[in-house]
Computed example of a mutant assay.
Amino acid sequence: MSGLSSAQIAAAYRVSCLDELDALKPGNVHAFADGHRMRVADFVASAEVSTPHLAQAGAGVGTRVRGGVKATLAATDQNTNLGILLLCAPLALAAERGGPLRPALQGVLEGLDPRDAADVFSAIRLANPGGLGRAERHDIHDPGAALLQAAMAEAAPRDRIARAYVTGFEDLFTIGLPALEAARARGLTPPWSTTAVFLAYLARVADSHIARKHGAARAEAVRVEAAALLSLDLGTAPVADLLAHDARLKAANLNPGTSADFTVATLFLDRLTAAAGVES
């Protein structure tokens, strides 16, 4: 079965990035409020300049990630989308290859090679994400580091995006897509269906971006607070309640960036599946 074209993948990625920005995501940057010294405009620019690299026909995962990060840094001088690119690049390649996306994605992950590792490690060094630290084995600062899968397995206990690489992106299929489907079943449409996806991640899993910067206990506290927000009826557009929580998180410099990255990837996967006309 033939896969999606570069143009189809590019359109799905770009719109998913922009849709995520339209949604009120407490603690993160969104159309209702900037934060963490970043503006919505930075993320819009990031989406625009990274799209050609993410959707580059025939390119490997590492090439897509590194190209997108370099273009983003040149345009914004900020790391606004490393996590997004790490999640979306394997999805893009899987969609390009064709067939049901989940097994195609597994094939992409199993086929990652030393070039992918070198390019991804280079991208991570360029982006220099907060709280990264160093690992005893397979450290990204080590030019002799092992294959990407080995490095991701090493980081998996402390980083949810790394964990995705060793679980076949399980969270997208067990948290993100079900949350999106449930939101639609309740009659929610964007941007509130997107907010529902974000809150599902934030309430289900302690955000690893917060954990890296502030510790596991603080990340768990944020998760518990997010779980309480699930009682809100998003169909009533509870802007005031969510903005109040947004302000509290930002005042404490708590940015659930991993949950936002997974939200973009969920929207992207959903669009790829619809465009391909096959089961995910």
Rank of each mutant, 00 (worst) to 15 (best):
residue 121 F to G: 10
residue 122 S to P: 00
residue 122 S to A: 15
residue 122 S to V: 00
residue 123 A to T: 04
residue 124 I to Q: 11
residue 125 R to F: 00
residue 134 R to H: 15
residue 137 R to G: 02
residue 147 L to H: 11
residue 149 Q to D: 14
residue 151 A to Y: 00
residue 152 M to A: 15
residue 152 M to F: 15
residue 153 A to T: 14
residue 154 E to Q: 12
residue 155 A to H: 10
residue 155 A to R: 13
residue 159 D to N: 11
residue 160 R to W: 07
residue 161 I to C: 04
residue 166 V to P: 00
residue 166 V to C: 08
residue 167 T to S: 13
residue 167 T to G: 02
residue 168 G to Y: 08
residue 168 G to T: 10
residue 171 D to S: 07
residue 171 D to T: 00
residue 183 A to K: 01
residue 184 R to V: 12
residue 189 T to I: 14
residue 189 T to E: 15
residue 189 T to W: 09
residue 190 P to Q: 07
residue 193 S to M: 09
residue 199 L to G: 07
residue 201 Y to G: 03
residue 204 R to H: 05
residue 206 A to V: 00
residue 207 D to F: 11
residue 207 D to L: 09
residue 209 H to N: 12
residue 209 H to I: 04
residue 210 I to H: 05
residue 211 A to L: 05
residue 211 A to C: 07
residue 211 A to E: 06
residue 212 R to G: 02
residue 220 E to R: 12
residue 223 R to K: 14
residue 226 A to Y: 04
residue 229 L to E: 08
residue 235 G to C: 07
residue 235 G to I: 01
residue 235 G to R: 04
residue 240 A to M: 07
residue 243 L to Y: 05
residue 243 L to E: 14
residue 244 A to N: 05
residue 245 H to I: 11
residue 247 A to K: 08
residue 247 A to M: 01
residue 251 A to W: 00
residue 258 T to W: 05
residue 260 A to G: 07
residue 263 T to P: 08
residue 263 T to W: 09
